[in-house]
Design a protein around this nucleic acid. Structure first.
Length: 259
DNA sequence: ATGGTCGAGTATCGA
């Protein structure tokens, strides 16, 4: 089974690129973030024509997450599990696809270390862990995919010195990510690659993509039983090139689950 | 290393 995640930065603008990409990348499950669409505007039919069932959680304008699947799409949970504070800005969607509990997540950016949004980001991470406690089991097949807005280590940013005092690299954010790993998740990409300078996001400004000034903030976190089946992983940098690209590239992994 | 760019919506704000 091939699992992908892609922050598309407006599905309305990106739909052509996404359709083209699905036809050549052939993911079985694809998590999307920042659709910036309402549920009513989500193009279920267009994805159906490509062979995908789809679920979407969005309120329009900002955020919005989706899961596409051609191996089944069941037990859909919009936002956080019942009993937890609601996911008011539509950043989380969970479903079971081909025996794997899959979440599409768009973690809040945080804006600045001293901003209220930064505390919100940390509390959002805590809620995500509580959510996983309720809807998933680390001893089974779980993949939490998306834009985490955290670079796990210094080698995941183009110049650590440039990020001192910034969000995405702070101890608190990395601890929040580590808490998910303590729950029983592992960074699937890092199981395959140890090199630095491997990124998933490049700012549109200042020619950052062409100058290799990027960050690795899009992750697929997998439970141990699933991690043991990972056979392949890649960031598709080609999808960041050309006309009307997202500022993120898709991340893909192959897992041997038998589906 | 924010200023450069995008996409929201149509003046700025957010990333």
């Amino acid at each position: 089974m091939r699992i992908a995640t892609w922050n598309v930065n407006s599905l309305k603008v990106r739909m052509g690129r996404v359709e083209e990409w699905l036809t050549y990348a052939q993911p079985d499950v694809c998590c999307l973030q920042e659709t910036k669409l309402s549920d009513a505007a989500f193009p279920h039919m267009a994805f159906s024509a490509l062979g995908y069932e789809s679920a979407h959680h969005g309120s329009g304008q900002w955020n919005g997450v989706a899961i596409l699947s051609r191996v089944g799409l069941d037990n859909v949970v919009e936002g956080f599990s019942e009993g937890l504070e609601a996911d008011e800005d539509t950043r989380l969607l969970t479903a079971t696809c081909g025996g794997v509990v899959v979440s599409s997540v768009y973690v809040p950016n945080g804006r600045a270390l001293d901003a209220p949004h930064f505390q919100y980001k940390l509390s959002w991470f805590k809620r995500l862990r509580d959510h996983l406690d309720r809807v998933a089991d680390p001893d089974r097949l779980v993949a939490v995919c998306g834009d985490f807005n955290v670079a796990p280590e210094d080698r995941d940013v183009w110049d650590p010195a440039a990020f001192v005092g910034s969000t995405h690299v702070s101890v608190e954010e990395r601890d929040a990510l580590a808490s998910l790993e303590e729950w029983g998740l592992e960074d699937a990409f890092r199981r395959r690659y140890q090199e630095d300078r491997l990124y998933t996001y490049w700012d549109y400004r200042a020619g950052d993509f062409h100058e290799h000034r990027g960050m690795r903030i899009d992750l697929i976190l997998v439970s141990k039983p699933l991690a043991d089946t990972v056979t392949w992983a890649i960031v598709d940098r080609n999808a960041r090139k050309g006309k009307l690209p997202s500022d993120h590239a898709p991340l893909l992994i192959d897992v041997a689950t038998g589906v």
